[in-house]
């Protein structure tokens, strides 16, 4: 009996495939990575806008925010890569850098305009 039936393994499930709860369970570190990629694309886009539509405060503000956001997340990876911050504090690091980012945006924006 066992021997007459052809058995098949199911090909490996991919990350998130058939997994209704994956998104809400995605940890913050992964979001940091995803958002850094998204901000990279946003930078390219906003940079284009910035060049064509000069001196539109809205575009400038968005560009500034996204650049800082991206930079801050890049800083996270550098700090972790070189063990300047212990990986155990990675979540605190994200929070800290997010605060730093907001402060930087605020300072630059109010300082210049």
């Amino acid at each position: 009996m066992a021997h007459e039936v052809n058995l098949h393994y199911r090909p490996a499930l991919q990350w998130g495939e058939l997994d209704p709860n994956r998104r809400q369970s995605t940890p913050v570190g992964m979001w940091a990575w995803i958002w850094q990629r998204i901000s990279a694309i946003a930078i390219v886009f906003l940079l284009g806008l910035h060049i064509t539509l000069t001196y539109k405060p809205l575009v400038q503000f968005l560009l500034l925010t996204v650049v800082i956001f991206h930079a801050v997340l890049g800083l996270r990876v550098i700090l972790l890569d070189f063990n300047l911050v212990n990986v155990k504090y990675q979540k605190a690091l994200i929070a800290g850098l997010a605060v730093l980012g907001v402060v930087m945006v605020a300072i630059i924006w109010t300082g210049i305009y």
Binding site: R10, P11, A12, L13, Q14, L18, D19, N21
Partner: peptide
């Protein structure tokens, strides 16, 4: 919800 691990054949 219980589901098998990713990246391994089921």
């Amino acid at each position: 919800t219980l589901r098998p691990l990713n990246h391994f054949p089921v």
